[in-house]
Nucleic acid binder design. Structure first.
Length: 694
RNA sequence: GCGCCCGUAGCUCAGCUGGAUAGAGCAUCGGACUUCGAAUCCGAGGGUCGGGAGUUCGACUCUCUCCGGGCGCACCA
């Protein structure tokens, strides 16, 4: 196999385009296997995506080989860092500090010896000792820019399943759900960008307690029939999901006053499970109606799904019975004959003692939520000897839903994921761990390792924001950095309300800045900006940072925001548009032919600031990889912002169109086009569009 | 009680598997539009990285401990 090789003997990557050469014999370094690093498993499957990563690999290999031959010792892992300044080279390794101790020589001397013996490394222009003993690597700038145009390689590493959104279908979506979807969807886009096959699942808990509570509200609090509910749904003057939001908040009061034992909830759940009665029909109608609202809310922020697995189908198709059998057979769970869990089937968790046993099947024989989740997880991994039936959701063949009867004979292959990511907030860590243990207890070690809880922190409200929403706060609450919201109490920021506000504000701005635009154009651009602001806002925080939601911050369009990134990209596009307008005959390929111009390297070397911009733009695939292995979409957001900052700086510092020197002008145009493409891709990975104008 | 997470500039947050002088945005103050549009750019002030001990050539990063905050740990989901 020539060119790139990812995983000899297993994966057969289809090379779409490869503009640079890998040494045929060069072994690509694998990540050392760390069982505790969840993302590590797939790193090996994602090679040859980026020319810069190939350079990293070559440097590491060369240094290791040189260390071996010079001193006859086992080389340590070679760390490669960014240098503090681009003038000091692009990459730096502190490895000589470590070697110095083993060799009992000063780090600088070690570095000098290493550099002298290493010889030439492809794409590395020079190596230099720096600081107290770093080795700094100066890359061949022109080669990096040429290689940076390499496009995605399709890998054949099997299917990744990403489960996200998963909103209880009993009320409208809120800001917390938007964070889940933004993180999940961005991760999906990054995986696909990396050449992975991805299936997106949005689990529908249509037979759960939350749906039951709303049904209790309709039936016993509002005394509504199925026909009444249907009339509500068809009423064009009200939003049914908003209606349920309020109703759900009232139900807790109803339980307190009229049904403290929650008998009505139990009865409703039972009727829902049995089916073929008005309660079940009402639950089905309510849940699926709200699912449609959720899908349209998510569509507004460019989030879509491949499959909607429904809990009712897991029930009706007896997934649990199958899983139960497997769990019993492998002694993964056992019957508790005595004690506080008498009569239950429990799973013993890793910790000592019986106190931590997790009940999977209750003494009355019903299965808990975790039990069903284990069955679902097993199905996702292709380990459950049973499958759903499928049909297009509302006749749309882009989104499929599971079903228990009928279904399409022909449907895409669902499930059987090689790796499964569950995007679920951190509060469910305990339960996700139980699911993980379940898979492990069945003996599926590899699959358990590939069952990943992609956890993230919640969205709370800043006290000021809670105040604004009319939520009552204690004096203590006011001092806190954030206040948790409660859907049960009807508190929180509804997703569509927030989007509406953002769109209104954005349209206002667009209108004042572009008085000549039509209403339709303003609306379109306003929408794109609103989505950009929202998605960037939700992505810029790292996963385990609690977002204290604040309207002032979320509605901001200046500084580190989505619109800033969009604006930078639009400016780049404007230059290209302007050129097409003023010089219709201009051949844009000229700029790319300049890649092979002998004057290019000199120009790149002469302008560190421009090179820093181009180098930054070249790192997109590297960053995408980082997101996959670290499960941290925020690093993509930060990267994109830095790139936009550098472009803005360049834009300000250089006049492109009016540049008199023709070569220089071509060079600048190349920089603009190269960068705007990287920015556009980075934004696309975050689900953010680039408006035509701003 | 057990477990997980957090504490970095006035505020909100970055800081890659330990590495060079700890960075952004917002806010404040002061500058830059006759140009590819200022949703931009430049400059200024602002830090005992919660406290202490340890490991290391080197600690915001790792270990221990204390302080302060958040969240989990149901025959709920």
């Amino acid at each position: 196999m020539s060119g790139c090789e990812c995983k000899p003997g297993r994966a057969k990557p289809t090379i779409i385009r490869c503009g640079y050469e890998c040494k045929p014999g060069a072994k690509r370094e694998r990540d050392s296997a760390k069982p505790e690093a969840k993302g590590a498993a797939i790193n090996n499957l994602l090679r040859c995506r980026s020319m810069l990563l190939d350079v990293h690999a070559r440097i590491k290999e060369t240094l290791k080989a040189t260390i071996r031959s010079l001193w006859n010792i086992d080389p340590p892992e070679i760390a490669l860092n960014q240098t503090p300044k681009i003038e000091m080279g692009e990459l730096a390794s502190p490895v000589c500090f470590e070697l110095a101790r083993a060799l009992k020589k000063p780090p600088k001397a070690v570095a000098e010896a290493l550099i002298a013996a290493a010889g030439r490394i492809e794409t590395v222009r020079k190596m230099e000792v720096a600081g107290a003993g770093y080795i700094n690597f100066y890359l061949d700038r022109a080669a990096v820019v040429r290689g940076g145009r390499v496009h995605a390689t399709k890998t054949d590493a099997g299917k990744a399943i990403v489960e996200h959104t998963n909103i209880n279908p009993n009320k409208s979506a809120h800001i917390g759900h938007l964070r889940n979807a933004a993180i999940g969807d961005t991760f999906v886009r990054v995986l696909r960008h990396s050449g992975r096959t991805v299936e997106v699942q949005n689990y529908i808990d249509n037979t759960g307690v939350q749906v039951a509570d709303v049904i209790v509200g309709f039936k016993y609090l509002e005394l509504k029939s199925l026909a009444d509910v249907r009339a509500l749904i068809n009423d064009p003057n009200l939003r049914f999901d908003y209606y349920c939001w309020d109703l759900y908040a009232k139900v807790s009061g109803f339980y307190e006053a009229s049904d403290p034992q929650h008998a009505k909830r139990g009865q409703t759940l039972k009727e829902m499970e049995e089916g073929n009665n008005e309660t079940a029909d009402m639950a089905e109608l309510v849940a699926m109606t709200i699912v449609r609202y959720h899908l349209s809310t998510m569509a507004r922020i460019n989030v879509a799904y491949d499959l909607l697995p429904r809990e009712s189908d897991i029930l009706h198709l007896k997934f649990w019975e199958k899983a139960f059998g497997q769990l019993k057979e492998r002694n993964a769970i056992f019957f508790e004959p005595e004690g506080k869990n008498k009569g239950c089937w429990v799973m013993r968790l890793e910790t000592e003692g019986h106190d931590d046993d997790k009940i999977i099947v209750r003494s009355n024989g019903t299965v808990t939520y975790v039990g069903k989740d284990i069955a679902y997880q097993l199905w996702k991994l292709g380990l459950l000897d049973r499958d759903f039936l499928y049909q297009p959701f509302d006749g749309n063949r882009k989104v499929w839903a599971t079903t228990s009867a009928g279904g399409s004979i022909e449907h895409p292959p669902f499930g059987r994921g090689n790796i499964v990511y569950n995007v679920i907030d951190v509060r469910q860590s305990y339960l996700q761990n139980v699911v993980h243990q379940g898979v492990l207890a069945l003996g599926y070690e590899e699959q358990a390792k590939n069952s990943i809880h992609f956890s993230y922190e919640v969205v709370a409200l800043s006290p000021a924001c809670a105040d604004q929403l009319g939520i009552e706060l204690s004096a203590e609450d006011r001092k806190r950095p954030h206040v948790e919201v409660s859907g049960r109490k009807g508190q929180g920021v509804k997703a569509d309300d927030l989007l509406d506000t953002l769109e209104t504000e954005a349209c206002k701005e667009v209108g004042t800045r572009n008085p000549d635009l039509s209403k339709a154009d303003i609306d379109k651009i306003g929408h794109q900006i609103a989505v950009g602001a929202l998605r960037y806002f939700l992505l810029k925080f790292t996963r385990n940072a609690i977002i204290a939601f604040d309207f002032r911050e979320a509605l901001n369009f200046d500084g580190e925001t989505g619109p800033y990134l969009q604006y930078a990209t639009v400016r780049g596009n404007n230059i290209v548009n302007k050129l097409r307008e003023t010089e219709p005959d201009f051949d844009f390929n000229q700029a790319y032919r300049f890649l092979d111009d002998p004057k290019l390297p000199g120009m790149l070397d002469a302008a560190d600031d421009i090179w820093e911009l181009l180098y930054s733009a070249s790192r997109l695939n590297e960053i995408a990889q980082q997101v996959v292995s670290s499960l941290e979409p925020a690093s993509l957001a930060k990267y994109a912002f830095t790139l936009a900052q550098r472009f803005s700086l360049f834009y300000h510092r250089y006049r492109i169109m009016s540049e008199a020197d023709p070569d220089r002008r071509l060079f600048y145009l190349l920089v603009v086009d190269y960068t705007r493409q990287a920015l556009t891709s980075a934004l696309d990975l975050m689900g953010i569009e680039v408006p035509q104008r701003m």
